[in-house]
């Protein structure tokens, strides 16, 4: 593990044993390799699962719009909706990892009495800020269509 330049250690911090235990709890070989790598695989699989399901639902919807309203079409849509369960399980694994990593990093920062220093903005962060690339809003934070319409009046 390399030291982060944006974190400065307070020499009057916690005892060395606590710091060592906090570092060991990060278990870099397991977290950085197996678990973070595993989480990335889960996220990629989730994306593929959703893409496949949406493709199927869209195909069924198009067939229905073309006049085929057979029960089989509706059943196929319901089958595709099972993606919610699968993706939910994949995301639960990733959530658990992030929560655990957050807890262990907080322990490390506490044990080493690390203080965050301001970081320089990277080129990609500057581009995101300049072009308002925020992505989807967090739940209950984004504007509704009615809000956007009012701003456009």
């Amino acid at each position: 593990m390399t030291a982060r330049p944006d974190l400065m250690s307070d020499p009057g911090g916690a005892p060395e044993a606590d710091l060592q235990a906090a570092i060991c709890s990060l278990n870099p070989a397991r977290f950085a390799g197996e678990r973070i790598g595993g989480a990335l695989v889960e996220l990629q699989a989730a994306r593929q699962d959703v893409e496949k399901a949406v493709e199927r639902i869209l195909a069924e919807a198009e067939a229905m719009l073309d006049g085929d309203t057979s029960v089989e079409r509706a059943i196929a849509v319901m089958e595709a909706c099972a993606v919610h369960d699968i993706v939910g399980q994949r995301l639960t694994k990733v959530e658990a990892l992030l929560a655990e990593l957050d807890r262990r990093l907080a322990r490390l920062a506490g044990a080493a009495a690390l203080t965050a220093l301001p970081e320089a903005e990277s080129p990609s962060e500057a581009r995101q800020r300049e072009l308002w690339l925020n992505g989807p809003a967090r739940p209950a934070e984004g504007l509704s269509q009615a809000d956007a319409d009012r701003l456009f009046e």
């Binding site: 308002w132 989807p136 809003a137 984004g142 504007l143 269509q145 956007a148 319409d149 701003l151 456009f152």
Partner: peptide
């Protein structure tokens, strides 16, 4: 777009967009 902050809508309007639809959107919208 899924970009749904006030700053996004204002920037789009200032840049000359005719309208703005927030994702996920309805057929009616």
């Amino acid at each position: 777009t899924a970009e749904s902050k006030v700053e996004n809508v204002v920037a789009a309007k200032q840049a000359g967009a005719n309208n703005y639809i927030v994702k996920p959107f309805s057929a009616e919208a």
